[in-house]
Structures are given as structure tokens and as C-alpha cells.
């Protein structure tokens, strides 16, 4: 009985292994392919080999040699960092209020912020385009930072309020009794406990801003504020007849690497953040 049971679990395990392998391969092959393409020379780029026969860093040299990409990279980093910082600070305050205070319209506030997160962004692109042109925000950093904050805030509030709810109220009372001012109580007791939550939220918001293509392509027109995902689509070869596949792939790899590193490094915290938001939220 035990033997057949053992065989059964082994068979089941094998099946799961197989399914997992399929999923992982399905997800990873395109990424690896792009990485492989980015290392191929112009001549071998269409040879269909998964592993490049001739390795080259030419594509990377090319993209970092153009102001187009470097400038876009600066824009991407700057815009994503600023948007993340503002969204996390505002989100922290809002989430703290939602988790701690009872005020009229609290439910409505949470509802509206969730509604914003659900709203199809594509339907907002045209009005935003018109508004930003009218306000002189079109093709500027604030022109991208503002919509990013708007769409990232619900996510930030939602995740952070779940974290704040887990911090016992009495800790703050205890800090007050121990002689802390409200600011000290927040900084010395609540903030250290909320730090993992704030951190997780910051990463999630950063990834959201970093990955955005829709707003980036619609609300920018020049190198002044174009971010990498948008800039990629404007890549051209050195001549009109040259295919920019290699350079696009190299750029794609460059902007993917920080995200992969982030996720690998903080994997546990992100998962904890997402699930605590899902279960307790």
C-alpha cells in the first residue's frame, strides 16, 4: 500500500515538474532569445541559432553611443524614481489615515482609489494628451510623473494600508506613554515596523512606472522626456535599410536587468507584500 502510494506521489511529482518546466520554458525562452539576439552580430542576427555563433558587444556599444538611448535611460530612471518617491510618501500618509482613523467618507475614498486602478488607461490617453498640451505639460517630466502617481497611488495605498493594519494600535499608545511625541512615535516605532511594507510598495510602484509604454509613447514627443520603452520603438539602424533588431534587443536587456535583480533580491518581501494585501486588504 505504502509502496503504491509512494509510486503515486512520485508520478504526481514528475507530472508537476513537467508542467512547471513547460511554464518556465514558455516564459523564459523569449527573454533568453532577446538576450541572445542582443549579442549577435549584424550578419548572424537572422540565422535562427539560439546560441550566437559569433558573440559581440557591438549592439551595447551602439546604444550607449547614441544620446537617444542614454537620454531615455536618464529620463526613465528620473521619472520612475520621482514618481515612486511621491506616490510612496502620499500613499503612506493616506494608508496610515485609512488604517488608523475613522473619518466620514473613508469607504468612498478607498472605493474611488480602487476605481482609478481599474480604469482602462487607454481611454484616458486622448484627454490627457489634450489637457497636457493645454497646460504645457506635454513632453515634460511632470507630464509623465503626474499620471504615473495617479495610477500608482491606489496600488500604494492598498498595499500600505494592509501593512499598517497589521501594526497593533497599542504600540503607538505605548510609545506615547513612554514619552514620545506623535512624530517620535511614528518615526521610532511605526515607521521601522512599516518599513518592509513601504519598501515593497516602492518596488511595485517603481516597476509599474519603469514598464509603462502607453503614457510614455503618447505623452512625449522628443528626447526631452521620452523613456526607454518609448525610445525603443524609435530606434533605427545606422542606415534606412538596416534592421535595428540587435540594438532594440540590447536596450531591452539593459532595462530588464535592474528589474530582474530587484525582484530576485527582494522576492520574498514582494510576495509577502502582495499576499498580505490580498488576504488582509
Amino acid at each position: 500500500m505504502a509502496l503504491t502510494g509512494g509510486a503515486d506521489t512520485t508520478a504526481r511529482k514528475a507530472k508537476w515538474w513537467f508542467v512547471n518546466a513547460v511554464v518556465v520554458v514558455y516564459a523564459l525562452v523569449p527573454v533568453l532569445w532577446i538576450a541572445s539576439l542582443s549579442f549577435k552580430t549584424k550578419e548572424t542576427i537572422n540565422d535562427g541559432n539560439f546560441v550566437p555563433r559569433e558573440w559581440t558587444l557591438e549592439n551595447y556599444r551602439a546604444i550607449f553611443g547614441t544620446s537617444e538611448f542614454v537620454r531615455a535611460l536618464v529620463n526613465s530612471i528620473g521619472i520612475a524614481l520621482i514618481a515612486t518617491a511621491i506616490a510612496v510618501v502620499l500613499g503612506t500618509m493616506a494608508a496610515y489615515a485609512i488604517a488608523r482613523l475613522d473619518f466620514p467618507g473613508k469607504r468612498a475614498l478607498v472605493g474611488v482609489s480602487l476605481l482609478i486602478a481599474m480604469f482602462p488607461q487607454v481611454s484616458l490617453v486622448s484627454p490627457l494628451f489634450e489637457m497636457e498640451r493645454g497646460l504645457g505639460l506635454f513632453d515634460t517630466w511632470p507630464g509623465l510623473i503626474l499620471p504615473y502617481i495617479t495610477f500608482a497611488l491606489p496600488l500604494a495605498i492598498y498595499t500600505l494600508s494592509a501593512f499598517f493594519r497589521e501594526i497593533p494600535w497599542e504600540l503607538e499608545k505605548a510609545a506615547k506613554m513612554d514619552g514620545a511625541t506623535p512624530a517620535q512615535a511614528f518615526l521610532k516605532v511605526i515607521a521601522p515596523l512599516a518599513a518592509p511594507g513601504v519598501f515593497t510598495t516602492a518596488i511595485l510602484v517603481f516597476i509599474f512606472c519603469w514598464n509603462d509604454f502607453l503614457f510614455a509613447i503618447s505623452l512625449t514627443s522628443t528626447e526631452r522626456s521620452r523613456t526607454v520603452p518609448a525610445a525603443l520603438s524609435f530606434f533605427t539602424g545606422s542606415s534606412q535599410f538596416e534592421d535595428p533588431t540587435g540594438t532594440i534587443c540590447a536596450a531591452a536587456v539593459v532595462i530588464t536587468v535592474p528589474i530582474i535583480l530587484f525582484v530576485l533580491f527582494f522576492q520574498r518581501r514582494i510576495v509577502a507584500g502582495l499576499t498580505s494585501g490580498a488576504v488582509k486588504g
Binding site: 497599542e170 504600540l171 499608545k173 505605548a174 506615547k176 506613554m177 513612554d178 514619552g179 514620545a180 516605532v189
Partner: peptide, 17 residues
């Protein structure tokens, strides 16, 4: 404010940091 009353409190949940 509590901090200016110079009294200490022990909570049911202990409220340890």
C-alpha cells in the same frame, strides 16, 4: 499630553516594540 504626565502604562497586549 501623555508624555508630559510622567506616568507609565502596562497594556493587556504588552505592546512591546
Amino acid at each position: 499630553a501623555p508624555k508630559d504626565r510622567d506616568i507609565a502604562m502596562v497594556f493587556q497586549s504588552y505592546a512591546l516594540y
